[in-house]
């Protein structure tokens, strides 16, 4: 895991959702502050000591995106995760995401929420530019694009390599399917089939076959997790 657990600001007016969010984040070691309306959210957000904030898209009387805009205009760069019940991701959210923020559509799996918060928190840290990634006895050379496990070379297609890099970079984290599709294929749609599982299954066969322990694990209903035994 990267760094210590940072503080998180949750701006959410629905009580049950807020409680669930706070509990899910708190049990994963984050310190969480809750703001139940936009004024509270703005004043807390201005203190800028948060690593990540999650913002409900539909607060009473105001669009969550407007709050982010206000904070950005005041120079607050805390990464924001927009939690939306609006369904389809519209162009405004797409535009924001390019600026380093992320979105999540209600209802969501908490594992997915955690994965995205974690990703945003890490983005706010400085990213170390490494050339070799390791996970257990798996080694990925980002320059020569060679993959080996226990000294044995593994042949991967370019996309498979990209996928494995993403999983290794997020090792220990649950990576939801949608995030994989978004970061590995640059696609923003919901695969209604198990196609990602099948694809990851093939990568897993190449990586984990005839090895001492498996690296790639399926998290049922959510996505995948690359984990080396301690």
């Amino acid at each position: 895991m990267v760094g210590g657990r940072c503080r998180i600001l949750v701006i959410e007016d629905d009580r049950e959702t807020a409680e669930q969010l706070v509990e899910a984040l708190a049990t994963n070691g984050y310190e969480v502050d809750l703001a139940v309306d936009s004024d509270d959210g703005l004043s807390r957000g201005r203190s800028a000591e948060y690593g990540v904030m999650t913002i409900d898209r539909m607060l009473p009387g105001i669009d969550g995106i407007a709050i982010i805009r206000r904070l950005r205009e005041e120079g607050i760069v805390t990464p924001a995760l927009i939690v939306s019940a609006l369904g389809e991701v519209d162009d405004r959210v797409r535009g924001l995401r390019a600026g380093g923020d992320d979105y999540l559509v209600k209802p969501f799996a908490f594992a997915e929420l955690l994965a995205r918060v974690e990703a945003l928190a890490r983005r706010s840290d400085s990213v170390v530019k490494e050339t070799v990634l390791r996970a257990g006895d798996l080694e990925l050379d980002l320059v020569s694009r060679k993959v080996s496990r226990g000294g044995r070379n593994i042949d991967l297609l370019p996309r498979e390599f990209k996928l494995l890099v993403y999983l290794v970079r997020n090792q220990g984290q649950v990576v939801p399917r949608a995030m994989l599709l978004q970061h590995v294929w640059d696609l923003h749609f919901d695969p209604t089939t198990n196609i990602i599982d099948v694809y990851v299954g093939r990568v897993r066969r190449k990586v984990d076959a005839a090895q001492a322990y498996p690296l790639i694990h399926t998290v049922r209903g959510v996505g995948f997790c690359l984990r080396a035994p301690c």
């Binding site: 209802p107 209604t192 209903g221």
Partner: peptide
Amino acid sequence: IVDTIADLDGVLRMFSSLTRISQ
């Protein structure tokens, strides 16, 4: 619980497919 979550996800997926089509 796992089965129920999976079923619920199926329902939500159908729901989002529908809204996506109408959108």
